[in-house]
Design a protein around this nucleic acid. Structure first.
Lengths: 360, 360
DNA sequence: GTGAAAGCGCTAACAA
DNA sequence: TTGTTAGCGCTTTCAC
């Protein structure tokens, strides 16, 4: 059997409670006592039993992170950042994959993840129609990368509208006027505030501001957002015979596919077609050509989200503090696909201060 | 307060033990009783408390997965597969990142991950010198992708030598004779059985079998294995002035970097230089050109590893069953970078049966 | 097939 | 500053 607090207490000739106080860094322990207890802990190789602690205190020291799929680079890099941010605070992370299954997402929101103190949730299928569910959530929850309008929970996301607008403005600054966008989602009232619609909005705003006529045929609907889908959409765009001199893909994954399709068709990037993505996944700076992108501030998102979740956990279940919204600052990273250098530094940056407009 | 087993027992007019039996699908419960209990569970919305269960049973239902970094596509895809395999068995996965820190790796092996029943561990820095550590591990452990010679723990890995050999044989079959390899590790006695040395061994075997002279200058030492490192190594290779008509990169990440460097230098792939990688990460089939690779059978690795770990957990701590070794079958995936089609089907395959030779 | 009793290891509340 | 008491929710043991 493992060594328990009692064993340590006996060896150190104190009570179990004192051992507990030492282990948990509580004040009001005499330095001498503390030293004696620590000595005993070391001698016996004592390690606290987390299940017992969890049972007694109601805390497990584990948080959940739910994403659609880890194999998608964006979510892998998000998970990387979240795990690192959680580790700083002594928390472990259980990673769950919902695989874009709406039933799973609803079930998760209803019951939470067992064994965890709280949840970071990056949903894919949840829409406005599920908003009511959020009102009944009875565990600490922070939503990631998605904003359900008026939801009662904390959200950490990015400046979808203004970042998308900045991306398109960058293309316009290159003299491009026929700018296609890949990644619009099928008309879906329930996802009005989803990243697709928000980024499309930024695209339209940029065109309007520059006095460029909006051609709906250049808005290509694609779901899901895997690289293959981006390649398919770009191929269809090429085959459509429509003129275009730039593409804004709503994610880098789509952008990688688009680069591929353009290459197959013999269109030179960026000379014939400039391309910019969104997410700044690691591989984007090493493709040929390297892919311009929007850096959404992954570290900031992860740090903020974990921080908010920890606060919610500490406030306890009963607390009904108002929901918070944080939008991380973004950078426009100009690389070869839109005329920049292979290894680019930010061109446009929203960093300090980060505007916190409602839909931006 | 949450609803407990006692509450359910009272409502169903049975003892807590009977509720427990129902919840855990134990036999010897009368169908009527079972139904009544289930009814009560549904009515009260009862959910078992995992901490309490863990405290009593010594099981948490959570396993750990330790990798260097999730942002590396290979580990993200491995984690994806492991989480999926674990979910099938009702297990959650805590993902830890060791970040290539040897101290962390040793600490992990010494104490395990708290809150878990067992650990899947894909180490980066551990070497033969740490073999003794493994003998003292007192929790269920399965090592992934790495084989410490004669280690006393279960291992699930791939056919590093024969897969590497097959990759190089493929290049030879294209008529290439000056085949460089990128990813050799600095001379390191403690990592004799690491993937780098094993794959290099396969490379040398293929050359020898084909009667091709082995030129040590074509073996490029690179660590770590990030795409940038692959690009750097390829650039150095080009600048060295050495003749070469093919590159075998020890991972796809290195391969992506090599494609980039070759592109920059104006070398046409595969006409001037054929390239093949190892790992078959998702992005490889969508680069331009698409990257040939070795598919290491990620699903098989994950399923087998989780299965072995579950067995170890069920056998209990005292069990001293012999260590097992499983090597997943591999496929050679020929894509454009070595003259194949964009979307390739396996060319060479080791699937069924998978030879289980000692070092292969 | 079901129940009663005990206790896993820890910490909150209170007492000294 | 430290100790005592009690019990978190569950499952194990053994009795019936």
């Amino acid at each position: 059997m493992a060594v328990t607090m009692r064993d340590v207490a006996i060896l150190a000739r104190v009570s179990p409670k004192t051992v507990s106080n030492v282990v948990n860094d509580h004040p009001n322990v005499h330095p001498d006592t503390r030293a004696r207890v620590q000595q005993a802990i070391a001698e016996l190789g004592y390690r606290p039993n987390h299940s017992a602690r969890g049972l007694r205190s109601g805390r497990t020291g584990v948080i959940g992170l739910a994403v659609p799929e880890l194999r998608q680079a964006y979510f892998a890099e998000l998970a990387d950042a979240v795990i690192a941010a959680a580790a700083k605070r002594g928390l472990s992370v259980i990673v769950g994959q919902l695989g874009g299954d709406r039933e799973h997402e609803i079930e998760l929101l209803t019951h939470g993840l067992p064994q965890t103190d709280g949840l970071l949730f990056s949903p894919e299928r949840l829409g406005t129609e599920d908003r009511d569910l959020l009102a009944y959530v009875d565990f600490p929850l922070v939503m990631l990368g998605e904003w359900i309008f008026g939801g009662p929970t904390d959200h950490v996301t990015m400046h979808n509208v203004s970042a998308a607008r900045a991306a398109v403005e960058h293309l316009i600054s290159l003299g491009r006027r026929r700018i296609a966008v890949i990644g619009a989602h099928p008309d879906d009232e329930t996802r009005v505030m989803g990243p697709s619609n928000l980024r499309i909005q930024g695209y339209r705003e940029a065109l309007a501001a520059a006095g460029i006529e909006h051609d709906p045929r250049l808005e290509r609907v694609v779901a899901p957002w895997h690289p293959e889908d981006g390649a398919d959409a770009a191929r269809q765009l090429i085959e459509s015979g429509l003129e275009f001199d730039a593409i804004f893909t709503l994610t880098d994954a789509l952008g990688l596919g688009a680069l591929r399709a353009l290459g197959e068709a013999g269109r030179v990037v960026p000379d014939d077609v400039a391309v910019i993505g969104f997410d700044n996944i690691t591989i984007s700076h090493l493709t040929m050509p390297s892919l311009s992108s929007i850096d959404p501030g992954r570290t900031e998102i992860a740090e903020t989200a974990v921080g908010m979740l920890v606060e919610r956990i500490e406030w306890g279940a009963g607390s009904s503090r108002p929901a918070r919204l944080h939008k991380a600052a973004f950078d426009v990273i100009v690389r070869e696909s839109s005329g920049g250098m292979a290894s680019a530094t930010p061109k446009t940056s929203s960093r300090q201060p980060a505007p916190q407009t409602l839909n931006g």
